[in-house]
């Protein structure tokens, strides 16, 4: 066997194993989607069925019989609300830090990151009591505030990294023209940093959408999100697999697609810019 043949063979083996890994990892998702098109009887059939007459019954039924739409709207409002709030606080701050970096800037950013280390369970009781006291327990407002604060450090750090990549000369030129700071942010910085802001927002939305501690602990009915709704299916053993699958498929589909589209930015966001 020549060297070339050897390399081709090696490649082929590697590719085969890569596909095996891909299929194994994707299989539970495939199975979930498949189950969502079964009847409840088919879903728990022994042995499990791979071929069957698909039905949309589950999807229709969860729209009619459960409050699925309400929970989906709650998830939408809280994840986009939390993200928007975090961005509104972070954009001016990150901008100021990136273009007027001082002696303390790095320490401030690192301190912000360190607030992420406060485990949710460590502050569960205070947040619970404060929520009760201010009458915002089980409201979307409460989740929006918590999600915003939860993601603020990451959002700050990523935006800071993006803003720093904007050439200073452009800003100086616009300042020479006498642009006000507000207009500078709006007309010069935002258009240039748009891609960065969008991908930061995407990461934040994904983190909020899948958040499953506060949404379970701090909501009962009114503000429950999809994560809490799905968790409520834990109780009845072995029942409604097809319907749970339909709910799960609907709840995960948008975020999985989001994730596919934003792989590169996610890597930067998730590693705080350390891996590009």
């Amino acid at each position: 066997m020549t060297d070339k043949q050897r390399i081709i063979l090696k490649n082929r083996i590697a590719v085969t194993f890569a596909w095996i890994a891909a299929i194994l990892f994707f299989f539970p998702i495939f199975w979930m989607v498949l189950t969502s098109f079964k009847t409840e009887g088919q879903a728990i059939a022994v042995p499990p069925q791979l071929f069957f007459e698909p039905t949309l019954e589950n999807y229709l039924e969860i729209q009619e019989r459960t409050n699925y739409t309400k929970f989906a709207i709650n998830s939408l409002i809280t994840s986009f609300g939390g993200t928007l709030l975090a961005l509104m606080i972070a954009i001016p701050s990150a901008y100021a830090m990136a273009f007027n970096t001082g002696k303390w800037t790095k320490d401030i950013l690192m301190w912000m990151l360190s607030t992420k280390m406060l485990p949710a369970v460590g502050v569960l009781m205070p947040i619970y009591f404060l929520a009760q006291k201010f009458n915002i327990y089980d409201t979307k407002f409460l989740l929006i505030v918590i999600y915003a604060m939860m993601n603020l450090p990451i959002v700050m750090l990523i935006l800071f990294n993006y803003f720093r990549e904007i050439p200073k000369e452009i800003l100086e030129a616009s300042r020479m023209d006498g642009t006000s700071t507000f207009n500078e942010i709006r007309e010069v910085v935002m258009p240039l940093a748009w891609g960065g802001i969008a991908s930061t927002a995407l990461l934040s939305v994904i983190l909020c959408w899948n958040e499953a501690f506060w949404s379970i602990v701090l909501t009962t009915t009114d503000a429950s999100t999809l994560t809490a709704f799905v968790a409520s299916f834990q109780a009845p053993e072995g029942l409604f697999w097809a319907k749970v699958s339909a709910v799960s498929t609907l709840a995960c589909a948008p975020i999985v697609v989001f994730g596919w589209l934003a792989q590169k930015q996610l890597v930067q966001g998730l590693t705080f810019g350390a891996v590009k």
């Binding site: 994560t227 809490a228 697999w241 699958s245």
Partner: peptide, 21 residues
Amino acid sequence: MLISPFFIMPTVSALVWKNML
């Protein structure tokens, strides 16, 4: 296919594994 599981809600993943698998 390889990165998709990361975007699945933890509660969904738990239910899929607990029940269907």
